[in-house]
């Protein structure tokens, strides 16, 4: 059946294929358009460079009026990423807008990797290291980058 959410998701997928943004990609799973798999490549000139981080995006029938649930599958050491892969990002919560499509969501998450917000930490260890011991923070990040190669 075709619902507004599914029609919108097919539109998002089409836009993602026709005009792919740099460093991110995504596609629905084979049997369910409401669940997507995505990959974000670590931004250049950041400790995340060369990393390939996998994510899942779960949509509901309320999309685009409600944001999807986005989680990292790969291990990510980042102040705003929870241990279970959940992401603390304002546009996925209170500042959501239906004008964000999947491409914009992934691009925003990629930007979050470059510019953490340590004031609303999801990972207190990462937030503390990011503020007090940048060298150790980058070392931990590089470790999870190497881990992402194996996944």
């Amino acid at each position: 059946m075709s619902t507004p959410a599914r029609r919108r998701l097919m539109r998002d997928f089409k836009r993602l294929q026709e005009d792919p943004p740099t460093g991110v990609s995504g596609a629905p799973t084979d049997n369910n358009i409401m669940i997507w798999n995505a990959v974000i490549f670590g931004p250049h000139d950041t400790p995340f460079e060369d990393g390939t981080f996998k994510l899942t995006i779960e949509f509901t029938e309320e999309y685009p009026n409600k944001p999807p649930t986005v989680r990292f599958v790969s291990k990510v050491f980042h102040p705003n990423v929870y241990a279970d892969g959940g992401i603390c990002l304002d546009i996925l919560q209170n500042r959501w807008s239906p004008t964000y499509d999947v491409s914009a969501i992934l691009t925003s998450i990629q930007s979050l990797l470059s510019d953490p917000n340590p004031n609303s930490p999801a990972n207190s260890t990462a937030a503390q290291l990011y503020k007090e011991n940048r060298r150790e923070y980058e070392k931990r990040v590089k470790a999870c980058v190497e881990q992402s190669f194996i996944d």
């Binding site: 029609r7 836009r15 004008t99 969501i105 691009t107």
Partner: peptide
């Protein structure tokens, strides 16, 4: 910036993109 890039270019509805 993400919203500006997401907005449709050919006059579609910003919510459903159709």
């Amino acid at each position: 910036k993400e919203v500006q890039q997401s907005l449709p270019q050919r006059g579609e509805c910003p919510v459903c993109l159709l």
